[in-house]
């Protein structure tokens, strides 16, 4: 989806440049790069993306060129967040975001089926609730 917006942005940029009478190869290159991005990157992201929830921890793996794997113990989970954009709703998808008390960033699980995501949120909330303390 982000690839799509990138493509649109590039096309708009190319269009604007064109009105300033810059050569066509700029537009061509932009389209080629955007197309390659759209064809390759989502597929790559999909292949990399993993997530797993055990009794004790949440684990996510995402990215493409730069890959990031995050592990957070269940005892440190602070909030569980479910988000659905307009497009995601159309495809019945959802994104689950799990935050800890660290400022270094949350764990995100993108593009889950909505029912799976709802189940996951319920599961995480129940598990995180079992732990006492303020999880810092």
């Amino acid at each position: 989806m982000s690839a799509g917006t990138t493509l649109v942005a590039l096309l708009v940029a190319a269009w604007l440049w064109d009105t300033y009478a810059v050569r066509w190869w700029v537009v061509g290159a932009a389209i080629a790069v955007a197309t390659a991005y759209v064809v390759v990157v989502p597929e790559w992201r999909y292949l990399v993306h993993r997530w797993e929830v055990t009794e004790t921890a949440v684990y996510t793996q995402r990215g493409w060129w730069a890959r990031e794997r995050r592990i957070a113990p269940m005892s440190r989970v602070q909030t569980v967040d479910l988000a659905q954009g307009a497009l995601a709703r159309a495809f019945r998808l959802a994104t689950v975001t799990v935050t800890t008390a660290s400022a270094a960033g949350p764990l995100r699980i993108d593009g889950l089926d909505r029912d799976v995501a709802l189940g996951l949120v319920a599961e995480l909330t129940a598990k995180a609730d079992l732990v006492e303390g303020d999880a810092t």
Binding site: W65, R67, R70, I71, S102, A104, G105, T136
Partner: peptide
């Protein structure tokens, strides 16, 4: 320690 992050580029 409240979690781990492993990052690697290609």
């Amino acid at each position: 320690v409240i979690g781990w992050t492993f990052r690697d580029t290609w």
